[in-house]
Amino acid sequence: MQKQFFGAAVAVVLACVAGAASAQDKIVISNWDAYMPPELLANFTKETGIQAELSVHATNEEIMGKVTASGGKGYDVLFVSSPFAEALHKLGLAAELDHAKLPNLKNFYPEAMQLPHDPGLKFSVPYSWGTTGLCYRSDKVGTEPTSWNDLLKPNDTLKGKTTMLATDRWLMVPALLSLGYSINTPKEDEVAKAKDLLIETKKTLLAYDDTTFYSKLVSGEALLVEAWDGWCNYGIAENKDIKYAIAKEGSDMWVDAMVVTAASEHKDAAQAFINYILRPEVHRWVAENILYKVPNKAAMDGLDPALIKQYPNLGITPAELLKFEQMRDLGDAQKLWSKTVTEITSSN
């Protein structure tokens, strides 16, 4: 009895070790949940013979935390927003890309090759891009919202029925834009003014939410939310009365990018994966599946016009996007921002 128990224990431990060892032969990709078609990895493997495993993270911050803790070991490709790609680069955790292995970059909009965070795409390849705006139930809000102030200082119909994005960077965006400041401001007085405004706003909020806000709109728990354009589309898919608008004070231009880790032992396979995504038909499939715009001209040109009619924000052009300030890494100001956001979320 005892021997069997020991035997079983040893077998299990060995199985784990073996499992860990065999995991080394495939690339590990970390992405947000449901941010690429579920069958994409299987198709990739079928065509290239490269095994790939998906890992999901809830937020940029979470994957950054994990990667800084492990030095990036175990991950090959990371999907992160551009400020975080910049931080990975500055930390030496992002590998330099070899454009000879990424011939499909030729499909990109020229604008997407020269983005401020990484001109010439030395360490990151944009996966999707877009705006942050107002997503709302047009059948229930009364007058349609047009300004960030409709969210920040909601009228009585909306009070207690609005949500804002929860992570540091986007939590601050509406207030900074409404006050006319840069969304990357390192200035203490500007950050402080935004903080005061957001503390007032918090009293009227249902919740901070950056994962389930669209289902709150669908159920009617919330009527107006701060949302990324593509994620508002998930709501529109379920309820036609949900609409998206860019506030008159503007938006940030965000870019979600793919980064190969410096610690990756399969850099060729990792870049083969990125190149596979960049194929016009694959990147188009991505756009149709996740309902976000992609920076791939060949892919966007092939998009079904009916889809753009159903989800108007898919039709926002690169020129329109580039009018907005791109979100950048904050560097030293990160500490000030982190503290400020803690002050906001812990205020009463």
Partner: peptide, 12 residues
Amino acid sequence: FFSLLKMTLGLH
């Protein structure tokens, strides 16, 4: 601690 040891994380 694991991070200091540069240990690869997993089920183990």
